[in-house]
């Protein structure tokens, strides 16, 4: 898992049915000192916990599909945790 900051939102009307009622965010990966690291990426947010400018933990690869209740969704990255503080 990695840390990231929500820097944008993606609206898509037509999407595969597993992703209905699931927000899509653009996330900038960050270090724990809240500095930019790497390129932005698109993540799914199956529990709709993230909002604009939030720091989140996201998970990539096969485990991203496990964030959905069905465990079956064509996603490469998912938000799993909304960070309150790091120290």
């Amino acid at each position: 898992m990695k840390l990231g900051k929500v820097i944008g939102r993606v609206w898509a009307d037509r999407k595969v049915k597993q992703l209905h009622s699931c927000r899509l965010h653009i996330i900038q990966p960050m270090t724990s000192n809240l500095r930019k690291k790497g390129k932005p990426l698109v993540v799914a947010d199956p529990q709709n916990i993230a909002g604009s400018n939030d720091i989140v933990v996201y998970v990539t690869s096969t485990d991203a599909t496990q964030a959905f209740d069905s465990g079956f969704a064509p996603v490469n990255a998912s938000v799993v945790e909304l960070v309150d503080s790091i120290y």
Partner: peptide, 8 residues
Amino acid sequence: MAIVDDIM
């Protein structure tokens, strides 16, 4: 898996 309408 999705057609993008808009990106903010």
